[in-house]
Design a protein around this nucleic acid. Structure first.
Lengths: 355, 355
DNA sequence: GCGGCATTTTGCACCGCTTTCAAAATTCAG
DNA sequence: CTGAATTTTGAAAGCGGTGCAAAATGCCGC
């Protein structure tokens, strides 16, 4: 497996512990231009106290800094300024399309504002959450965005909770309009003639599970569709792969209660559900219609392509970042809650009810 | 959309610039126990110089620290120790299953060792790479793992390049045995009677593209299968969704040259390809066999489930982390290259050739 | 009661940068 | 040519820790 080893002439971590002459400090620049560090610092930061520094000196300093390739030490600088221009993102898992889309929206915005982000992976485990919360704060994040998390308490920096439902001090919740989502989905199924509808209910550790289920229950009532308890299955896995929906759908089929449509908790579980149906010899959508949730990119490329309730995930990320950075930059007003609208994306996985 | 705004009594970033009395410093602990900061530091770090500190004092200090909830300031500490216990991960995109699996392997290992990781998102864009390289180094990463990247130069900290093919100073490359992979895939197809095989060739920005194609070309030769140039399509999108393979497969079909099997660059493009085939009225695997690459979790839940060449992605992440942390902890020997073996996972998307 | 040794504890310099304040240098009015 | 006004620069404190040389304290026997 291993092809080759070579010994290196110098150690790495050990080396750094002393003074590394390769790294250019402010003092080095100051010596180079024969001025004091204070003056150099003032010029390079264009600080108010540098108002009176003559143009020639200024230019001399700037050029020396460039020439020596001076990079201010991030840590030393923090010690004075208490700024890191960094936000923390607390998410379930790094490999899911859901999280990927949201982060992409966040990244795009914070990059434009010259901020950086670091991630903590909670995996819905309170201990992991606590660990990463500590690490993010230790590293000076100036704000936090959480994804799909029941925040146990408010964090000591400004926070935006995507899919957050508990109102903590200092936290903005960004939530989808679940009532609307449920209505869109169930109306769509009802219009196609479905009356016996099964539901994959989210794992309680997922932040949206309870609200979404609530909304489905209400909407089904008002549409006069009753959802039999035998047709409701709770997702139990914490996987972010189709496995999430595969097992529970098998369970559902075992119950032998007939149904013509399935409303899955999200697209990824819908994909697993379709797999389970097809293994059972049921065709989607001819025998069973399936509707997902989220509209991840893959949904459109499944066969059959997935009808789903779209969440504007990228925009949600963007919005979260925008609100957070505004607060970090001193804005004192912030929304307690931002509600976003879902959209029905009708594709191939839903069709007229068989009967 | 916005539900409510409230004004806050105090600003955030501004507040931090002064001295925040809420945060417990070493000095505060020292005052509390009526000892000097030096003594407290020595005890809390269990440093060699604390040898002579009596057990009672030691206990008193430790308890005070716990009681006051003292947390050493990460930045101040760095300034002395030059340690961050943090590695950087440079990856294409945060929402892909491929990257997710690798990171999961990395995370698992570094967490056990009490390290932390921060990510940079290069999106195969040299400018973005440079930007995030700077930011990671600025923030004191002690090592870097790159994923699916043509590293333009060696980094000034220990580096492990997953799917790295260029030998840079101080870099360990972890590579898959592509010859073996190509042989496994083509032999499998040949055994099923396929002779006209199409290939989705990776986008050149992907690190493995060239080696993989090379290996396929060689293996096909030695198996006596010739791959016609009309049956080779280059992936051009930089998407990490099935879209990646969908368009190119349409192109392939337009060329009208018959084939019975497709070897996709990876699973995600294979999924897009299958979609394209099915839209064209071609059944997989009855009309066309499709084989993917990577064995991401979703592969098993597609319909048809995907035959693929498995890369042990989680293990690769784990191995990368292990090698990197060993170097950071002072190990001077390290492998220049680690080669890992692929595996054929035969599922439903491949079958006997139609003719 | 005191020197001498061992045990505890304390200053202090430094990591690299920012910022204030005062001093030095220069210019200018009279 | 003097003194004030203005421009330019430097010295120093401090952010929060670490680590070491040196000081303070305690304890022993004589």
């Amino acid at each position: 497996m291993v092809r080759d080893n070579i010994p290196k002439g110098h150690s790495t971590a050990a080396k750094k512990r002393g003074h590394d002459p390769a790294v250019v400090t402010l003092k080095a620049v100051a010596e180079y231009v024969q001025l004091s560090p204070g003056t150099v610092s003032a010029v390079l930061n264009d600080s108010p106290s540098s108002r009176h520094i003559p143009e020639v000196t200024r230019k001399r300093i700037v050029e020396a800094a460039r020439h020596l390739n001076y990079k201010p030490n991030f840590f030393a600088r923090y010690l004075r300024n208490k700024r890191t221009y960094t936000i923390g993102i607390m998410l379930n898992d790094i490999g899911s399309e859901y999280g990927g889309l949201v982060i992409s929206g966040i990244e795009d915005y914070v990059r434009k504002k010259d901020y950086f982000f670091i991630t903590g992976v909670h995996r819905h485990d309170p201990e992991l959450f606590a660990r990463y919360e500590r690490m993010l704060l230790e590293r000076g994040v100036e704000g936090v965005i959480t994804l799909d998390l029941h925040l146990p308490h408010s964090v000591r920096v400004p926070t935006v909770a995507i899919a957050g439902h508990h109102q903590h001090e200092g936290v903005t919740n960004i939530v989808l309009d679940h009532k609307c989502a449920a209505r869109l989905a169930l109306q769509h199924l009802a219009d196609l003639g479905h009356r016996e509808i099964a539901v994959l209910k989210g794992n309680p550790v997922s932040a949206d599970s309870s609200e979404r289920w609530q909304a489905i229950a209400e909407a089904s009532q008002s549409l006069g569709i009753s959802i039999h308890e035998d047709l409701v299955v709770q997702l139990v896995s914490e996987s972010t792969t189709p496995e999430l929906g595969y097992g529970p759908t098998k369970t559902l089929l075992q119950r032998k209660r007939p149904f013509t449509a399935l409303f899955a908790f999200n697209d990824i579980s819908a994909i697993g559900a379709i797999r389970a149906f097809q293994e059972a010899g049921l065709r989607v959508p001819q025998d069973i219609s399936v509707i997902g949730f989220d509209d991840i990119k893959s949904a459109a490329y499944q066969y059959p392509s997935l009808t789903t309730i779209r969440q504007p995930l990228w925009d949600i990320g963007q919005t979260a970042a925008k609100i957070l950075l505004a607060r970090i930059e001193g804005e004192e007003k912030y929304p307690l809650q931002v509600s976003v609208k879902p959209e029905l994306i009708a594709r191939e996985s839903t069709a007229k009810a068989a009967r």
